[in-house]
Amino acid sequence: MPTQPLDGIDRRILVALQGNARLTLQELAALVGLSPSPCARRVRLMEEAGIIAGYAALVDQARVGLPISVFASIKLERQREEDLDRFAQAVRRWPEVADCYLMTGQRDYLMRIVVQDIEAYERFLKDKLTRLDGVASIESSFALGQIKRSHILPLV
């Protein structure tokens, strides 16, 4: 599905919503220099086109008892489509996996796993990841700190 072209007003709307998705329509319209009705139409069109994929609250993982981020590089035994699909389907079911990317290079996947402690990561490995057919190797790295994490795309 082709993406609709974004003009400057659309980009300003997206920047404003990325910064605060709880803006009222009146506040958003004022920020981007439109009246509420055309602003609402633009937002609706971007939602329908999938440009705005949804709205969510950003939760601080440490404050909810999940302070550990582990980055795991996964290599599969084979990179056939059915193996890649099976892996992706399993990962989507695991709530500990916050992010997962199919990669180029030495490894097939890079995942960010969020857990409460090292023991929880060990359980995740033993009960889920290592039991999945087709996993050849797993390389884990524990994040010591977070320097930057952003959900805001550089649209301007």
Rank of each mutant, 00 (worst) to 15 (best):
residue 47 E to Q: 14
residue 81 E to V: 05
residue 106 Q to N: 08
residue 93 R to F: 04
residue 90 A to H: 08
residue 134 G to I: 01
residue 73 S to Y: 09
residue 37 S to Y: 11
residue 21 A to H: 06
residue 9 I to H: 12
residue 23 L to T: 01
residue 58 L to T: 08
residue 129 L to E: 02
residue 83 D to V: 06
residue 75 K to P: 00
residue 41 R to I: 04
residue 35 S to F: 09
residue 67 P to I: 01
residue 2 P to V: 12
residue 34 L to D: 01
residue 68 I to P: 10
residue 122 E to Q: 14
residue 49 A to M: 11
residue 148 K to R: 09
residue 38 P to L: 08
residue 35 S to M: 05
residue 59 V to Y: 12
residue 136 A to W: 11
residue 115 V to D: 02
residue 82 E to W: 11
residue 87 F to Q: 06
residue 125 L to M: 11
residue 152 I to P: 12
residue 101 Y to N: 04
residue 66 L to R: 15
residue 90 A to I: 15
residue 142 F to A: 07
residue 129 L to P: 00
residue 11 R to S: 06
residue 133 D to K: 13
residue 50 G to V: 05
residue 95 P to N: 03
residue 115 V to R: 07
residue 56 A to V: 08
residue 112 R to W: 05
residue 134 G to R: 06
residue 75 K to L: 07
residue 127 D to A: 15
residue 23 L to D: 01
residue 64 V to S: 11
residue 116 Q to K: 09
residue 43 V to Y: 00
residue 18 Q to P: 04
residue 65 G to Q: 14
residue 8 G to P: 14
residue 97 V to N: 01
residue 80 R to I: 05
residue 102 L to G: 01
residue 39 C to K: 00
residue 50 G to T: 04
residue 64 V to C: 12
residue 32 V to T: 03
residue 35 S to Y: 13
residue 133 D to Y: 02
residue 5 P to F: 08
residue 87 F to P: 10
residue 9 I to Q: 10
residue 29 A to C: 04
residue 40 A to R: 12
residue 118 I to R: 14
residue 20 N to P: 00
residue 152 I to N: 12
residue 48 E to G: 08
residue 73 S to T: 06
residue 70 V to Y: 12
residue 134 G to S: 06
residue 25 L to I: 03
residue 13 I to P: 13
residue 149 R to D: 14
residue 84 L to K: 09
residue 112 R to S: 05
residue 3 T to E: 14
residue 79 Q to W: 02
residue 111 M to T: 10
residue 2 P to R: 13
residue 107 R to V: 00
residue 146 Q to N: 14
residue 6 L to M: 13
residue 51 I to V: 13
residue 18 Q to W: 05
residue 124 F to L: 11
residue 47 E to A: 10
residue 3 T to L: 08
residue 70 V to C: 15
residue 137 S to Y: 12
residue 36 P to Y: 07
residue 118 I to Q: 04
residue 132 L to N: 14
residue 122 E to D: 04
residue 50 G to W: 06
residue 5 P to L: 14
residue 100 C to F: 10
residue 19 G to Q: 15
residue 37 S to A: 10
residue 155 L to A: 10
residue 35 S to P: 00
residue 31 L to H: 03
residue 105 G to I: 02
residue 73 S to F: 09
residue 27 E to L: 00
residue 45 L to K: 13
residue 110 L to D: 00
residue 148 K to Q: 11
residue 76 L to N: 05
residue 152 I to T: 15
residue 46 M to N: 06
residue 67 P to A: 02
residue 73 S to V: 02
residue 14 L to G: 11
residue 23 L to Y: 06
residue 130 T to M: 07
residue 14 L to C: 12
residue 97 V to C: 00
residue 97 V to M: 01
residue 141 S to Q: 07
residue 68 I to A: 03
residue 19 G to K: 15
residue 151 H to E: 14
residue 113 I to T: 02
residue 151 H to P: 09
residue 125 L to Y: 07
residue 61 Q to P: 09
residue 4 Q to W: 09
residue 27 E to C: 00
residue 41 R to N: 09
residue 44 R to K: 06
residue 118 I to T: 12
residue 2 P to A: 15
residue 75 K to D: 00
residue 110 L to Y: 00
residue 93 R to L: 13
residue 21 A to F: 04
residue 61 Q to I: 06
residue 67 P to R: 02
residue 28 L to G: 03
residue 95 P to L: 03
residue 32 V to E: 07
residue 64 V to R: 12
residue 114 V to I: 15
residue 30 A to V: 01
residue 28 L to R: 04
residue 88 A to V: 05
residue 83 D to T: 09
residue 61 Q to H: 11
residue 62 A to E: 13
residue 146 Q to H: 13
residue 41 R to D: 10
